[in-house]
Each structure stands twice: as C-alpha cells, then as structure tokens.
Amino acid sequence: MKFIIVAGTPGAGKTAVLVHTLKILLQQNVKPSVVKIDCLYSDDPKRFAKLGVPVQLGLSMDMCPDHFSIYNTDAILEFAKEQNSEFLIMETAGLCHRCAPYTNNSLGVCVIDATSGPNNPMKVGPFLSCADIVVITKGDMISQAEREIFRECILETNPNCSIIEANGLSGQGASELALQIRSTEKLVSENESLRHNAPFAVCTLCAGEKRVGAEHHRGLLRKMNGMQEYVGE
C-alpha cells in the first residue's frame, strides 16, 4: 500500500487541496482511503465522504495530534487494508510543527500558506524540511516577488523537495499533486519509523500539571539560556 501523509499549518488549505486532488484521483480510477486526524472537532470527513471515498476520523483530544497519529499508524493502515485501498491518504492537524509525521516509506506532503511570510519556512521545522512535496497555497494573494522569495526560502530549508503551487479554491496544482501521488514508488512496510525524532515530551505537563514555572515541573527540560537538564528522580 502507498501511504501519503499530508501535514500543514492550520488554515493553510490542506483539506481544500486534498478534495480537488481526490476528485482527480477518482476520475483516474484510483480508489484511496482517507484518514483525518484532528484535535477536538472536524467537519472534514463529511467533505471527503461526499466524494465517495472511505473516511475515518481520529480525534486526539488531550494527546498531541501528531503523537496520536504516530501511535495509531497500525490501526490507520488496517482501516485502509479493510477497504482494499491501494492508497491511504492521511491528513494530520499537527500543531507545534516540531514533529514531522512522515514515516520513511510514506510520501510526505507539506501544505504551507504563502501569506504566512518568508520567515515561516525557517520557523516551521521538520514537517517542512523532511517533506517530499511542498504545496504552497494562497500564492494568488501575494505579489509575484513575494511568491518567488517564499519559494526560495522553502528550497533553502528543503533543497530536495518538489514544489507545487496550488490554489485550494480553483483546484490549481491538484492535477500535479495527483500525478505525484500516483507515481510514488514507495510502499509502506511492516516496520515503519519516523524520518525525524519528535521533540522530548517527557514532562509533568504531559501528565496534566497546570501550574506554571520551574518549581512545578520535572522531566527533561530546557531553560531560556539553552541549558537542558533532567529534573527528577
């Protein structure tokens, strides 16, 4: 099975681009399954279901959505197998973007909003730098000069990615994304691992501590001055 993982900043247009791409894939007789991972609520499964593709929604609630999707990868792949799908497309709602949900044998697609400014590609981290394909949305809202600068900044962060300029409203770029999805040769294996480590997250906040400030926290912690230490037993 081919596993396509779509990540991106909130509101960048992941779902809009995917809906256009799925329409093209369906016209070409490719029948993918779709899994949407969100935090608290999502209407998107309805939009996908309207297209006639099998959809599953996973809500991460108190858990980080990227950690949730990584933890549930087996179950997600199992769902697609039951549907006899050759392609599984998973859309995640990562929040801090220090995680990259892509596994080594998946096709990693990062969707990023061109209006977020040319410093953004440097800020967002591994979900962009580890991606195979970077889809730039909302390019029609900025000048040609800013589009060119934005593209350059993405290539500085991820020199080997393939860039697609897309428009979630008109569907521009969707045929290129559909083509790249169809022609990926990567097959998901039994032993998938992440391309990039997730941030250290063993701390008291993960266990539900709500008080702020150093005295209330234990675990592997990093200070403002850059020093990192383990506090605890």
Binding site: S116, G117, P118, M141, I142, S143, E146, I149
Partner: peptide, 11 residues
C-alpha cells in the same frame, strides 16, 4: 504586476 495592494513579508 498583480492587483495586490499589500505586502505580507515582515522585513
């Protein structure tokens, strides 16, 4: 030269 009347880049 597009119709855009503002820049988003903060620089």
């Amino acid at each position: 030269l597009s119709q855009n009347m503002n820049f988003f880049a903060d620089m």
